[in-house]
Amino acid sequence: MSAPAAWAVSDPYADALRTGRGPLFLRRTDGWLLPLEVERWCADADAADRAVLDRCEGAVLDVGCGPGRLVAELAARGRTALGVDVSEAAVTRTLTVGGQALRRSVFDPLPGEGRWGTVLLMDGNIGIGGDPGTLLHRMHQLLRPGGLLIAETERPDVDERTEVQVVTPGREAVGDPFPWARIGTPALLRLADRAGWLTAAQWTAGERRFAALRPRTASSSAEPPKSTAVISSQRARKTSAD
């Protein structure tokens, strides 16, 4: 049985999802704070979200689904969709709002591997595991041939690997720091090109940035990038859903 991920056992994160409000931050080891948009995540899908979902093809896997606004919107449209998240609070809220979700790391075995029409990495989830190259390789394994990956990227052209903790003002951080990455669209497209992806589209919606990618070939047999930062922080305890 895997140890719980730092994100999954973070009380501030779980509390924020249960209440639907922040403030909540990712704090780097140097003290820099990245605000997390808890209220937006816990609201219904907005116009930018719905425009992303309009592009989705086939069955949709939402990686790091959080409180489930996207899978709930897809379910309301009659689409087949599943969310995965290492946070028990996130999965519980997703089920409550009408979506389907499993408490699982993206690096654990998942239903439908190699058959998903679209995989979503929204709200900065291209940063999961701290190594976007390794995460892109995992996306190859999940998508069907010719499938679509949609990632939400950072506004600046940043390309950062770091360690963070989830914190809220007035409370101590819970759990050890875990690897995270922040990457803008130009850096992601450069990385994706080297990793065997084609750029299908890129667009903005207000201050949010998105890129859509497709595997260059149908094969997912290429060797994954070497990384030691990725897997340990994104494992979660197995639940009855397994």
Score class of each variant (00 low, 15 high):
residue 73 E to R: 09
residue 25 F to M: 00
residue 42 C to R: 08
residue 25 F to T: 05
residue 88 E to G: 12
residue 56 C to E: 08
residue 138 R to W: 01
residue 58 G to N: 02
residue 34 L to W: 15
residue 136 L to G: 13
residue 192 A to K: 02
residue 4 P to W: 13
residue 202 Q to M: 10
residue 240 S to A: 15
residue 131 D to L: 02
residue 145 P to H: 00
residue 238 K to L: 15
residue 201 A to S: 12
residue 60 V to R: 00
residue 54 D to I: 00
residue 155 R to A: 13
residue 45 A to M: 03
residue 184 G to A: 09
residue 38 V to K: 07
residue 2 S to V: 09
residue 129 G to A: 09
residue 198 L to T: 03
residue 127 G to D: 05
residue 171 R to Y: 08
residue 208 R to V: 01
residue 227 S to W: 04
residue 100 Q to R: 13
residue 25 F to S: 01
residue 124 G to L: 08
residue 53 L to A: 02
residue 143 L to C: 01
residue 39 E to Y: 14
residue 221 S to G: 08
residue 13 Y to P: 01
residue 170 G to E: 05
residue 93 R to P: 09
residue 138 R to C: 06
residue 79 R to S: 14
residue 47 A to L: 11
residue 49 D to K: 10
residue 177 P to V: 09
residue 8 A to Y: 14
residue 208 R to G: 01
residue 201 A to R: 13
residue 51 A to R: 15
residue 110 L to G: 02
residue 182 R to L: 12
residue 71 V to A: 12
residue 143 L to N: 01
residue 230 V to S: 13
residue 105 S to L: 11
residue 51 A to C: 06
residue 6 A to R: 13
residue 149 L to Y: 06
residue 78 G to A: 05
residue 24 L to Q: 08
residue 75 A to D: 07
residue 130 G to L: 10
residue 91 V to F: 12
residue 102 L to T: 00
residue 168 T to V: 14
residue 16 A to Q: 08
residue 121 L to I: 07
residue 183 I to G: 01
residue 214 R to S: 03
residue 4 P to S: 08
residue 192 A to S: 06
residue 191 L to V: 10
residue 143 L to G: 02
residue 117 G to L: 01
residue 18 R to A: 15
residue 66 G to S: 05
residue 10 S to W: 08
residue 145 P to E: 07
